[in-house]
């Protein structure tokens, strides 16, 4: 599926650098960023919050039957990562041949996420790398 270039461009800060947000009223932190604070449930001041990218594997799986867009990458690990700041985020876990386990420490790396054929855009993003 080809995506509009604007669709991913508008998320570049979040996708490159794990930039989420933080409610200035209750200090709840979010990644990906939320339009309003889920905890407060009303409009509060939301400030930019950059997450360091360190965390650990909370759960994971190895995708062996991928969506069409990831056909050539399969099999690959994905996981729910608990960031050290608290939020949980889903993402790829790089496979360096070592066993991935619940609790494996990871950090955010910078990789190609998806390439739109031979002539389309290349979408870059964080992936998690076992430390």
């Amino acid at each position: 599926m080809e995506r509009s270039s604007a669709r991913l461009w508008r998320k570049i800060r979040a996708r490159y650098n794990l930039v989420g947000n933080e409610c200035q009223s209750c200090k709840s932190e979010y990644f990906p960023p939320r339009p309003i604070c889920k905890k407060c449930g009303k409009k509060t001041e939301m400030a930019v919050k950059k997450f360091a990218g360190n965390g650990e594997v909370y759960s994971f799986t190895k995708i062996r039957v991928p969506p069409d867009t990831f056909r050539e990458e399969a099999p690959y690990y994905v996981g729910v990562i608990k960031l050290e700041e608290g939020p949980m985020v889903e993402g790829h876990i790089l496979d360096d041949g070592r066993e991935i386990k619940i609790g494996t420490k990871v950090r955010a790396a910078f990789r190609r996420m998806y390439v739109e054929g031979d002539e389309g855009l290349i979408h870059y993003q964080f992936k998690f790398e076992p430390i």
Binding site: E73, R111, R112, Y124
Partner: peptide, 16 residues
């Protein structure tokens, strides 16, 4: 390079 690496990803990792 892995399938998800290119000159840009390598540049970013080195730059960081």
């Amino acid at each position: 390079p892995g399938r998800d690496e290119d000159a840009a990803t390598i540049a970013v990792e080195a730059a960081r």
